[in-house]
Nucleic acid binder design. Structure first.
Lengths: 208, 208
DNA sequence: GCCGAAGGTGAGCGGCCGCTTAGCGTGCCT
DNA sequence: AGGCACGCTAAGCGGCCGCTCACCTTCGGC
């Protein structure tokens, strides 16, 4: 119904890169609808209606309904990846960088839950080509987190037996926030980010 | 195309409680279809086809397509809850019981990934009444895990600041296995169960 | 003041959706 | 042998789906 919550970090309003204005309104409407009902249960009439337009207007800016999902997924993954890259490229030790990465990644999944839900859970609705493109971005996400954990193991900060498995678990934990997080619930995105950073440091055996 | 993998534990073939035979075949077909494509993208013609029947046959055994999802969700949650209850009621200390609970819960989500996917991710497709019934089961699932963690804190085995938040994270970690686990991947359900039990014990600060 | 491009609409097409109905085959009860 | 309950199918209904098309505005350039 509005663009209220803002705990993600620097960005004031996302999707500003999408132009013209009508195309952005349609995309924002699609994000909301896909997050609420899922891609397949959302109709093009619903999307256009939320954007205050007729059903036909959608096809001036997007070739198909799937292209909308593709664009959302692409932009969302780019954003998630850049959040992780910023944290991973920080100057502190592995412990601090992992805590940064997890807390900011979680803050995004909680604060931008609507977007994150679509990005993380509607992947299967994409066709083979778009799907492959997104999966490649996911591998880069995985590599960023794994890199920090490997650094920590090499420096002796972390005690991890299965680096790949632990990386998977850390990412899985963060991503699933988008499924259960409730804006009206008792926790703020910042609080969940702090809690999860602590839990993840425990998982890798970092000194407190 | 068959019921191959078996790492869940005692059960040989699930859904045996569903009778008559045709109703069970339809239900198994629905589980496969829902897990592959999602509830809304699955057609009644597809379900009936997989079960080797005509579309109309479905409505002899089930009132609507949603009733199929409801039955699947109900049986799946009952099974998940009974797995956790068995572990929680064990005789060991909290550390052992939590490790048991996590490893068996994860084994189920990995080994019975098809079912778990439907159970955990298609909840929103249910109507209000069925949804409320399932949400009640989820609260019981949460209570079982929280109970073990509270026991461990009381006995001094665990060092946990936020019991509710940690419970949420532990369950979230286990449940998300159903999203990423790949039967053709490098890990067996048993291996993931063991890895996750170790990670969770670290999360609660249990002595190794 | 005219013109074409850009962005929008109302109506509607072909098709697939969930679900229903009339009727058919089969096997058990008497 | 007759009857009938049960499980199932073929056909199809009403409706909504993604998407298209013919047409209508608005507006900057000359």
């Amino acid at each position: 119904m509005s663009t209220a919550e803002e705990t993600t970090g620097g960005e004031i309003e996302p999707w500003e890169e999408v132009t013209p204005d009508a195309a952005r309104r349609l995309l924002v409407a699609a994000v909301e609808a896909f997050a609420e009902r899922g891609y397949h249960a959302t109709t093009t009439r619903d999307i256009a209606g939320r954007a205050g337009m007729s059903p036909a207007a959608l096809y001036i800016h997007y070739k198909t309904k799937e292209e909308l999902l593709h664009r959302i997924s692409r932009i969302g993954h780019d954003r998630a990846l850049s959040i992780l890259r910023t944290a991973a490229a920080g100057e502190g030790d592995a412990t601090g960088r992992l805590a940064d990465a997890v807390s900011s990644f979680v803050r995004w999944h909680a604060g931008r839950r609507t977007t994150a839900r679509v990005v993380q859970y509607e992947l299967d609705a994409l066709g083979p080509d778009a799907r492959a493109e997104i999966l490649d971005l996911r591998r880069q996400v995985d590599a960023e987190v794994r890199g920090i954990i490997e650094d920590g193991v090499a420096s002796g900060e972390f005690a991890v037996l299965d680096v790949h498995g632990t990386t998977l678990a850390v990412l899985s934990l963060c991503i699933d926030v988008a499924r259960w997080f409730n804006v009206d619930g008792p926790r703020t995105p910042d609080e969940v980010g702090a809690l999860y950073a602590d839990l993840v440091l425990r998982m890798v055996g970092a000194a407190k």
